[in-house]
Design a protein around this nucleic acid. Structure first.
Lengths: 188, 188
DNA sequence: ATTTTTATTTGACATAAGTCAAATTTCTTG
DNA sequence: CAAGAAATTTGACTTATGTCAAATAAAAAT
């Protein structure tokens, strides 16, 4: 399933010139500073953010408490999926955890481009499929793995994470309390 | 987000005749009996099953124990997403929980049709988007809700479920033990 | 209908993880 | 570098849920 990213990348690389140009014409680069919000609750997610450099996260508030749903690293695509797809107001925030550089693509422009360039439609489908598989895997972890195993899996896949992301955020990403995470780490 | 199904259905309804014909040409109806497996572990999921009538489920084995990942009712689309998308061998089973009637569409034929009829590509994207939103919602439940609340939510959305689906399966779908589910039900 | 099998409930106890408070460590910032 | 703020750890205790075994209840088969 990880190989799917490579398939997506090679698909992009092999796009014809017009399609590539169309894509780059509707994208632009921008920087954000640590702590900046790329998206807030109640806003409509009208842009997708491809992380070029740095770390970001997505979270929502559940009775006042932040619940982190995704961590973004280089080459990840950050959007609030439901808000972006339905163009409805978002329940989620997207926040820069470090200074970041992103490539922004507007929803509206991408929608139009997809009509003119069906390969972009195919690309969009690949992104959605990848996200679906990622979600299935994450669901599997919540469905069947203990907090300890979820943590171990996380640091196996992203060993560097602990240096850059505060434990509060990691705990909430794992769906456990900060104290439990601290105890898990103490045991290992 | 539930309204998205209506949007998909009206999208299908409004498809041009050729596209609709192409779609119906690669689909066929079939019946299965209660207990039949539509897909087994280690098979490649080469078909999608639109449930026309009856109930089915998807599950995998986790050290010998069945973990139900999805329950399918009328108009739901049953596939093992990762196996279908990557055309790799499946970790999941799909099983008829009652006698069912389904509309089968072959992966290969649908892939070809998508090239010729970009609207089918758009339709496929909508299916993937819907599944993504469904998964996000399910993840939200595991991430933040208690077993009791997950159960209450389930019977709110599918009140009939308890009459047709054994509690063992419901418990595994909710990610709790059969005994815990029994106690939750006793309290309410 | 009676038996056998399967599904569900109940009891007693074990374990994972949460909560609240306090202590300690680490990071910021003047 | 010192002082204050923020992040992390630790302790004591609570709560949710799991496990194993046994008891019922319901369904299927003879």
């Amino acid at each position: 399933m990880d190989s799917y990213i490579e398939r997506i990348n090679s698909f992009i690389k092999n796009l014809d010139k017009e399609t590539l140009l169309a894509l780059s014409n509707i994208s632009s680069e921008r920087k954000f500073k640590k702590g900046d919000l790329l998206l807030s609750e109640n806003e409509i997610c009208r842009k997708s953010y491809l992380i070029l450099h740095g770390i970001a996260r997505k979270y929502y508030l559940n009775d006042g408490k932040e619940v982190t749903t995704e961590l973004y690293f280089e080459n990840d695509l950050a959007v609030s999926f439901e808000s972006y797809t339905l163009q409805q107001s978002s329940k989620e925030y997207i926040e820069a955890l470090t200074d970041i550089t992103v490539s922004i693509t507007f929803y509206e422009a991408f929608q139009e481009a997809k009509i003119k360039y069906p390969k972009l439609l195919a690309l969009d489908l690949m992104f959605a499929e990848y996200y679906g598989m990622w979600l299935e895997n994450r669901l599997f972890q919540f469905h069947t793995m203990s907090a300890t195993d979820r943590y171990l899996d996380l640091i196996k896949k992203s060993p560097h994470i602990v240096q850059f992301v505060p434990l509060t955020i990691i705990a909430s990403y794992l769906g456990i309390s900060l104290e439990t995470l601290s105890r898990i780490r103490a045991k290992i």
